[in-house]
Write a protein that binds this DNA or RNA. Sequence first.
DNA 1: CTCCCGACTG
DNA 2: CAGTCCGGAG
Length: 361
Amino acid sequence: MPKTGFTFKPLSSSASATQVPSSDQNPGSEVTNNVSIPKVRVFTRKKRVRKTVDVVKENPTAENKEHSGRSLPDIEEFAYKKVDRPALSGKSKSTFGKLNMGTDIASSVAMEGKAPANWEKVLEGIRKMRSSEDAPVDTMGCEKAGSVLPPKERRFAVLISSLLSSQTKDHVTHGAIERLTQNHLLTPDAMDKADEATLKDLIYPVGFYTRKATNMKKIAKLCLMKYDGDIPSSLEELLLLPGIGPKMAHLVMNIAWNDVQGICVDTHVHRISNRLGWVSRPGTKQKTLYPEETRVALQQWLPKEEWVPINPLLVGFGQTICTPLRPRCDICSITEFCPSAFRETSSPSSKVKKSGARKKL
DNA sequence: CTCCCGACTG
DNA sequence: CAGTCCGGAG
């Protein structure tokens, strides 16, 4: 991949491990330095085809697809998003009940705020396992590359990169950022003026590009109008931006502002922390139900120096060994400290009703 | 819960 | 080829 100046690499705390040598990079990237070209290069490959699957969801109760309750109740402090979310109270309760089961991994669960036994050995063990294989998840690959930009631009780039990186492979995110950069659209000003359709085409392969293009424009405008072209500097204000939730907000605080307000918890950190018995619901031995709950619990005992590195560490571990499905306990070196080792317990988001149910007849 | 997008997996 | 992946929002 040609790196034309900006080589930002967002802390892809999610996807990215898996290879994907896919021959398709971006076919038009021979655009080296025609800086003067005012027009935007549009993606012409693979047509975006709507799936138009005329699936008549005759079974609205989604028998499979059991997410792990993504939305959270208003757990403690600021951290939680925009306005007040009324929901969660009544409805999803039944679902949570189900997810809640099988949580006896608590033998070594940390007592409120107290560090679980051997956590240092566990971390060390994971580090070892990670170093042996080529960890694709390098955390701050950005600070070195992004530093070529003035602070303000760099922060904006970090914010946009974070937005684009969710649910998207690293190389894809990188390509999108590169295209935006080449077209001089990686600034609040330009982005605000740009066509939404143009942005959409430029970021194309990233996940949820349509929604992200919309969010990018809104974010650019907000940065312009409320923050003088800079990005919000607090967690609360970052959370107010469309498309920026707890996970990304912490990531941006860490990288863009170098101000560690909290741990960036994604599903890997969430799942593994629970498997290890590192966190539990307040006052219980139950697994935490939401990433935010995990974050709070983890922050109660994990030394602050580990707050940032814990993410890339567990993400890499979670993608290669402690996987959601069929974790590789057989090759894991810390099973002696893991209450969940060799248990089919699977992830926090258990998979109860699933294959057993009938498809569509 | 469901949708958003698409690439990958069993 | 249905199910997974996994962050955010409604």
